[in-house]
Design a protein around this nucleic acid. Structure first.
Length: 881
RNA sequence: GGGCGGUUAGCUCAGCGGUAGAGCGCCUCGUUUACACCGAGGAUGUCGGGGGUUCGAAUCCCUCAUCGCCCACCA
């Protein structure tokens, strides 16, 4: 006998082991089945599962399990990402606790430490994925820094370099002074800061007492000023063009130039130019051949390029000092409060400094062309479609991608420098040496570039590197391109776009046919959850308390397209109750000896009750299929919830009770078989969303002899019979019973009377009892304005009752006719209003001309119904006189 | 400064041209061998405001308000 409630924790571990041991997760490259592939976005190797993971992996698992059951050769490729900056920071923090710095340790030792940390914590995330019920092919688990993937990275880098799509360049980068590395534009987050705008007066050379006023939010950068720009059309400053200003505190003579960059309406209209520390000024400086002075060191402290008084000062200390000194000189015209956007590193939180340095760049512009075309022509489709705009917007304005990082953890760039600065880019040191030797005609000493690649560089190769590229493996042939990529919009740029670039370049084909962008799970304040913000809600806690299936179902039910999820725990609780409900339905089936019948044929059912549930189930199955295939996960969950609770448990099982107890042995046997069958179908349909619960029920249903549900075929609901008449009939009975219940509640019938009124149909008594109450049913139906589903309805109702409806017949005789009259009069008014409204529509030529035929038909039907209702209500009222 | 999205029952959210929905919460009632993690019933909404399109608008368009997100070099 099943327990009263489902015990998730015991079940989860047991079935997960069984699934894995059975090989159910494994793809089969030798199979003749059509492949279905999803690349798992690799979580950070040292990370832990957060709610965003729970959502994305649940949805992916649903797709994989569904298609696996549909007979596809499903591959869900798992793995983890080395997450360069994030991981390095974690390890550095750990070392800091032991008063050790990365530099004191040295590169080699430090990297060893990171590997040790990876070995220690790397299993956490995959363990948690298992706790979530995820079913990827673990045999194939990869890591972005394992041997094969590293080789792929080197191959790609070298090829792109030799094709001129990777190059080295000296330009301003986003410098993180805390992490001492460059970061890409995408890793910069702008935050609004309330600052000040200082108006400085720069003296004009050779014009005593004359100044040009420049406004700045960053006074410290003035030490690197090498010009002042004004707009060419700005009359106020025309006379200054060609003259020079003398930079205060420094004494440098700097030219005043005309440049469109200067906005006459902003600040004073004249703008100081610091080519070394501002992206705009860099351009202006280049246009006017202004000197470029780098005034910061890698900590963003002032270097020796500034006057001695400021050397070594931190940039923010220097700011105060400079303002004070300018003030003392009387060179501050005014100070205004000013709100500005300040760039911060998304990992470190440090204020980013534009800094001149040598970095490696990838020509993203060129690589973006094919992906753009692929999305334009629909070879890759975004779901929801609206994300394509975001994709295009970014791809069409894409900047060179800075791929080098001054870190130690990551793929070291395969470039070697000769003493004369020549660069040799090869996959191995041996090859680089050979190339250099060939170049110089003798062996030279080479030094490897110390930088590593941006983490996203290796992630970009994920869809093919994990399949064995550059080797022409069977898997690569079979599973690329993949079917769908499931991810949040936050990494469209970081990852999706780059996979498309690399996929096209090296495979000549899109990496995935569909990109499904799901919502983000946000925290209670609507903020994005992220590792760096530390506002992560632990899904494992919810799994612990409500079970994995409840969490999965909740996320699925909330995964409507295009909207973010703010998780309410009451929803999880509600769906936990849903799991219990289904569990108890199975328990009911067991108690009533409902066993699966081997060759059960749904279309051979005799009883209307059973024909009805078969049809209702068929409709549900079709809805679930369609919903999953359209990525409308919430609709799939909703349909299953509604059917399971609202139809199967609330009505079918209730109707089945008297049948089980009745005299119709054959009917009871058929109903037992149908109950077991329907339950089996439900657990199949629900399995992708709630794998553990359904597997457990399946085990009971089959006595453990039916194999694992995870490997069972998906039921074909499209071919199931749908007996419309039976379905309409049962719908009517349901409303009839609801009406009786309403009457009971309204009339406040004493419990004893109600009990007496409850008809239990047993044995030979049936016909007599039904006969005795037939008139009561008819009378009640008329009173409650219930249209019969077909002719001979009262007789039908009797028949249905015979099949098992628990009807409270005697109540009909207990109705308070005064109250009933009031109610009927209200209903009459409603019906008359309805008719008026419908008539207005139907008499409206434009409605008839323009509305869809089925809508018109529906209105006509409603009118007929309403008219019939009026007749019935009137007759009922007359009878009440 | 540009985009994008939200604003529907007390709360969390579906619905997105044809008579307002779910779960939770709330109020009645219920000791029937599936389930109190339950059952029956009930109350609660000018579908953010204002315009427009349409025979018909929560649903489409415009506008305003408000909340949030993304992108952007404004000194």
């Amino acid at each position: 006998m099943l327990d009263k409630t489902f015990n998730p924790s015991e079940t989860q571990a047991r079935f997960y082991r069984a699934w894995e041991a059975s090989g159910a997760f494994e793809c089969n490259p030798n199979s003749s089945a059509r492949p279905y592939t999803i690349m798992m976005p690799p979580p950070n190797v040292t990370g832990s599962l957060h709610m965003g993971h729970a959502l994305t992996f649940t949805l992916q698992d649903i797709l994989i399990r569904y298609h696996r059951m549909r007979g596809r050769d499903a591959l869900w490729q798992p793995g983890t990402d080395h997450a360069g900056i994030a991981t390095q920071m974690v390890v550095e923090r750990q070392l800091a606790e032991r008063q050790i710095t990365r530099r004191s340790l040295g590169r080699e030792k430090f990297v060893e430490q990171v590997w040790a940390w990876k070995a220690e914590s790397g299993g956490t995330i995959t363990r948690q994925l298992r706790a979530l019920g995820a079913s990827p092919d673990w045999r194939r688990e990869r890591f972005t820094m394992d041997e094969g993937l590293s080789a792929a990275v080197r191959r790609v880098f070298v090829r792109l370099y030799k094709d001129g799509l990777i190059y080295r360049d000296k330009r301003l980068v986003n410098w993180d002074p805390k992490l001492h590395t460059a970061i890409s534009d995408l890793e910069v987050e702008s935050h609004e800061i309330k600052g000040q705008l200082w108006y400085f007066k720069y003296p004009i050379e050779g014009a005593e007492g004359e100044f040009v006023e420049v406004a700045t939010t960053r006074p410290e950068t003035m030490l690197g000023d090498t010009g002042v720009a004004v707009h060419p059309d700005d009359e106020r400053y025309r006379h200054l063009l060609g003259k020079h200003a003398i930079l205060p505190l420094v004494g440098r003579r700097i030219p005043i130039v005309a440049d469109e960059h200067a906005d006459p309406t902003a600040g004073s209209g004249a703008v100081k130019i610091t080519p070394g520390h501002d992206f705009n000024d860099f351009q202006v400086g280049r246009r006017h051949k202004l000197e470029l002075i780098n005034i910061f060191d890698r900590d963003a402290a002032l270097n020796d390029a500034v006057p001695a008084a400021y050397r070594g000062l931190d940039r923010f200390v220097a700011r105060k000092r400079i303002v004070a000194d300018m003030e003392a000189l009387g060179l501050i015209a005014k100070v205004e409060p000013h709100t500005l956007m300040v760039p911060h590193g998304d990992r470190s939180g440090a204020v980013i400094e534009p800094w001149l340095s040598d970095q490696w760049y990838c020509d993203a512009k060129t690589l973006a062309q094919e992906p753009i075309a692929a999305v334009e022509t629909g070879r890759t489709v975004f779901v929801p479609r609206s994300w394509e705009n975001t994709f295009f917007e970014w791809m069409r304005n894409i900047q060179p991608w800075n791929i080098s990082r001054q870190l130690w953890w990551g793929h070291q760039i395969p470039a070697w420098y000769a003493p004369d600065g020549a660069i040799f880019v090869e996959e191995t040191e041996v090859e680089a040496v050979a190339a250099a030797t060939a170049h110089y005609g003798k062996s030279v000493k080479l030094e490897r570039d110390p930088d590593v690649l941006d983490t996203w560089f290796s992630s970009a190769l994920w869809p093919f590197s994990t399949l064995g590229w550059p080797e022409p493996t069977r898997e690569l042939q079979r599973y690329y391109p993949t079917d769908v990529l499931v991810t949040g919009f936050d990494i469209i740029f970081f990852w999706v776009a780059r996979m498309m670039m690399m996929g096209h370049r090296f495979m000549g084909e899109v990496p995935f046919r569909t990109v499904y962008i799901h919502a983000l799970v946000r925290d209670e304040r609507g903020q994005k959850m992220s590792k760096s913000k530390g506002n992560i809600i632990d899904p494992l806690d919810l799994i612990e308390r409500y079970g994995c299936d409840a969490l999965r179902f909740t996320l699925t039910a909330l995964a409507a397209q295009g909207r973010d999820i703010k998780l309410a725990e009451s929803r999880v609780e509600g769906y936990r109750n849903f799991a219990t409900k289904l569990w108890n339905a199975a328990r009911f089936a067991e108690m009533n000896r409902c066993a699966l019948v081997p060759d059960f044929a749904p279309d051979a059912c005799r009883l209307r009750l059973n024909r009805w549930i078969v049809g209702a189930l068929a409709e549900t199955g079709v809805r679930v299929e369609r919903a999953i295939e359209e990525y409308k996960f919430n609709e799939a969950a909703g349909a299953l919830y509604q059917f399971t609770w609202g139809t199967f448990c609330d009505w079918y099982l209730e109707f089945a009770k008297p049948v089980f107890a009745g005299a119709d042995e054959a009917g009871a046997a058929e109903t037992r078989a149908t109950t077991a069958w329907a339950l089996a179908q439900v657990v199949h349909l629900l399995h992708p969303i709630m794998p553990f619960l359904t597997e457990a029920i399946w085990e009971h249903l089959t006595g453990g002899k039916g194999g694992l549900l995870i490997s069972a075929p998906w039921p074909d609901c499209t071919t199931l019979p749908r007996d419309r008449a039976a379905m309409a009939e049962l719908d009517w009975v349901v409303s009839l019973i609801s009406a009786i219940r309403t009457a009971r509640a309204e009339l406040n019938v004493p419990a004893a009377a109600e009990l007496a009124a409850t008809l239990r149909i047993e044995g030979a008594d049936v016909e007599a009892r039904v006969g005795a109450h037939g008139e009561a049913i008819r009378r009640l139906a008329r009173l409650k304005n219930l249209a019969p589903a077909s002719e001979g309805s009262a007789a039908r109702a009797v028949q249905v009752v015979v099949e098992g409806a628990t009807l409270l017949l005697d109540l009909a005789g207990a109705i308070d006719f005064d109250r009933e009259r009031t109610r009927l009069q209200k209903e009459l008014k409603d019906a008359v209003d309805d008719i008026e409204r419908i008539e207005r529509k139907l008499n409206n030529p434009q409605f008839v001309a323009k509305a869809k035929p089925e809508v018109i038909e529906e209105q006509r039907e409603r009118e007929v119904e309403a008219r019939a209702a009026i007749d019935r209500i009137k007759a009922a009222l007359a009878r009440l006189q």
